[in-house]
Design a protein around this nucleic acid. Sequence first.
DNA 1: ACCTCCGTTAACCGTAGCGGTCAATTCTAT
DNA 2: ATAGAATTGACCGCTACGGTTAACGGAGGT
Lengths: 208, 208
Amino acid sequence: MNSRFFSLPEEKQQIVLNAGFHVFSRNTYKKSPMSEIADAAGISKALLFHYFHNKKELYLFLWDTCARITVEEMERSGCYEQKDLFNSMNYGMQAKMRITRQYPDMAFFAVKAFYEKDPEVSSDIQKSMAKYLSIHATRKLQELDPEEFIPGIDLNMMYKEMYWASEGYLWEYLQRGNLNFDEMERGFQNLLDFWKSVYLRKTEENPG
Amino acid sequence: MNSRFFSLPEEKQQIVLNAGFHVFSRNTYKKSPMSEIADAAGISKALLFHYFHNKKELYLFLWDTCARITVEEMERSGCYEQKDLFNSMNYGMQAKMRITRQYPDMAFFAVKAFYEKDPEVSSDIQKSMAKYLSIHATRKLQELDPEEFIPGIDLNMMYKEMYWASEGYLWEYLQRGNLNFDEMERGFQNLLDFWKSVYLRKTEENPG
DNA sequence: ACCTCCGTTAACCGTAGCGGTCAATTCTAT
DNA sequence: ATAGAATTGACCGCTACGGTTAACGGAGGT
C-alpha cells in the first residue's frame, strides 16, 4: 500500500512520521497543510505526495502507526504483568517516555485525532479506535491487596488520584517542549517514592 | 478604545468573547479566521470588524480579558487568605470552575496564547504575561505546619503532587467537553477528602 | 559514451479562504 | 418621516491549499 514509503530507510521514515505528528497535533485536520509537513520533514511537498497518495491517507496511516506503536510498547514494557502497582505504573510511564523520546508529538496527535470532528476522517478514527479499545478492555483493573496499604484508605480513589497526578506531571513537561527525559524520569521516580512512603502500610521491612 | 464593543449588552459581549476564546484556543493565531469567530458568535464578519479594528486587536483584547478575569476571580475567591491548605485549594478550584462556567474555553485559550509563536502577537503576550506574573509573585508559597501532617512526609512533594493531580483532574473533564459542573465539583470534593484522610496527622479530633 | 530507471523537485493549476472594506439595508428612537 | 446607529452581503486583492506534471540528476548496466 505505502510501498514507496516503506522502502525508505527507517531513520527517514521516522522523520516524516514525526513531521506529520507535529503538524497534525497542532492544527485541525483541515488546517494541517501538507506543505508544512513536508517542510518539517525536510523534503518537498511533491515527494510527500509521492509517498502518500493524498492527505487523508497520510493522516490515517499516522493514526494507525500511533495506535500500533502504543499498544506494542505498552505490551513490551511488561507493565500489565506486574503484580506491584508501583512497578506497574513505573514501567507504564517508562514506556510512554520511550515512545515520546522517539516520537515527541505522538501523544498530542493521539488526543487531537481522537477528538477530530472533520467528517472526512472522524468516522475512520472512531472505527479504528473501537477496535483498539476492544483489545484494551481485556486488561482489567489491578486487584489490590488492602493489607499492603495504610488502613482505611480508599484504594479506588488512590488509584484515580495517582493516575491524574501522572497525567498532570507528564502534561507539564510535554507542554513546555524541549524535553529533558532524564529529568522527567527522575522526577517521576520521586513521585513514585512519595506515593510509596505515604500509601504503603508500615511494616518491619518498610518502616516509612 | 473598544467603545463600540463595550456599549453592547454584557450578555452579547460574553457570547463574542466565548466565540473568540473558542476559535483561538483550537487554532494558531494565524489560522484562526475572523469569519469563524463571527459565525460562532452568531454575527457577521463585518460586524466583528466593527467592534475590533483588526484581528490582532481582538486577540490581544481577549488575552487581557482572560488575564484580568483570572486574577479578579482568584482574588475574589479568597483562596489566598486561607490558612488551611485544603480550603485554599478548594476555593481556588471553585474559582476556576466559576470561570469555566462563564467562559468554557478560556483555560484552553490561556495556555495556547502563552505558547503562541506568531511574531505578530507573541511579544505582546509575553510582555503582558511578565506584568501579571510580577503581581502574582507576591503570593508566596503556603507556610505549612509540619505538625498538622503525618510524620516524615515531604510537604514540598505533597504540594506538587496535589497540584499535578488537580491539573490532571481538571484536564480530564475539560477535554471531553459538555461539562457537568456539579459532578466536577463533587469529584473534586472527594479528591480533597481523600487527601485529608491520607495526609493529615491523626489526632483526637481527626481519627482518620 | 549512452541509455534507463527512479528518487526528487520547481513550477504550475484551479480553487478556496483569508483580512479587511464599503455601500446598502434594516432597525430604533424621536 | 427622518436622522442616526446597528448590521450585513458582496466585494477586493492576495495568499495558501491539495494535487499534478514535466523535468532534473545521479547510479548502474551495457
